[in-house]
């Protein structure tokens, strides 16, 4: 039963219909959680005892940085599935993720930079956390550029999957950079083994935003994947019927 459903989902036509129905069910909770997170983060949460109001940048910066790593793992995982089982859908998810992952990496870097200016006195330092995150952005851009450079979509998917999998080595480097090296960037306050050293009123909006960003990624990756599928399947009957019924 489940394996049959999985096979059906692998069919582009079924996936297109299924994801079209799924998107609103993800988008509405995403919007609700994001609004709640913004309200909690900008209005309810108290100012930080050291950083005053400036720390509120955290509520976009930290979830963006988490997403930049999470999406990379999804992209590399989908790339591996595409390599091993030649599953078209995994190829489509991988390349669609690359664009969104690059967006979140850009957001993490730019909001971090804007946060760094008033707190550290500089927009940028070449410390381990910032540099490894910048390399992550280049990896995403490399995946996108490589995919665009190869005309045949299946070959492009295989080449980018290999690049993405090799780049996974950067992920633990980013995560542990603040522990392995002396960095200006602060250490983790949430993702560590003992209790998070952060006030509950700050933790709640942070987690709300993190879940909202995850749902947001699910929505936009499906939207992109649907476009990519239409383009790949443009010569099939179901796509031309769909196009003409619009």
């Amino acid at each position: 039963m489940i394996s049959r459903w999985f096979h059906q989902l692998g069919s582009p036509r079924y996936f297109y219909r299924f994801s079209g129905r799924l998107i609103p069910w993800l988008a509405v909770p995403c919007a609700v959680l994001m609004l709640a997170g913004l309200y909690q983060g900008l209005v309810v949460a108290p100012p930080d005892y050291q950083q005053g109001e400036s720390y509120r940048i955290m509520f976009v910066h930290v979830p963006s940085a988490w997403m930049s790593l999470f999406i990379y793992m999804v992209m590399a995982g989908a790339g591996a599935i595409a390599l091993i089982w030649h599953m078209k859908l995994a190829e489509v998810i991988a390349i669609s993720s690359a664009h969104i992952g690059a967006s979140f990496t850009f957001l993490a870097l730019i909001t971090g930079s804007i946060w760094g200016k008033p707190m550290w006195g500089t927009w940028w330092v070449w410390d381990a956390r910032l540099t490894s995150e910048l390399i992550l952005l280049f990896l995403y851009l490399g995946v996108i550029a490589l995919h665009n450079a190869i005309d045949d979509k299946r070959t492009a998917a295989r080449a980018t999957a290999i690049l993405a999998i090799v780049g996974v080595v950067n992920i633990p480097i980013i995560h542990y950079s603040v522990e392995w090296w002396n960095t200006l960037h602060q250490g983790p306050t949430v993702t560590k083994f003992d209790a998070p050293s952060i006030d509950m009123r700050m933790l709640i909006p942070l987690l709300l935003m993190a879940v909202a960003f995850k749902l947001y990624y699910a929505v936009v990756v499906l939207m992109r994947a649907r476009c990519e599928l239409l383009e790949r399947e443009r010569n099939t009957l179901w796509v031309s019927e769909l196009a003409e019924s619009k």
């Binding site: 100012p47 005053g52 109001e53 400036s54 509120r56 940048i57 976009v60 910066h61 963006s64 957001l107 730019i110 909001t111 804007i114 946060w115 200016k117 008033p118």
Partner: peptide
């Protein structure tokens, strides 16, 4: 006003 950090906080949120 964001305690004087208005430019930094709001530009971050606007870009996002």
């Amino acid at each position: 006003h964001m305690g004087g950090y208005a430019f930094y906080v709001w530009s971050s949120y606007a870009i996002a």
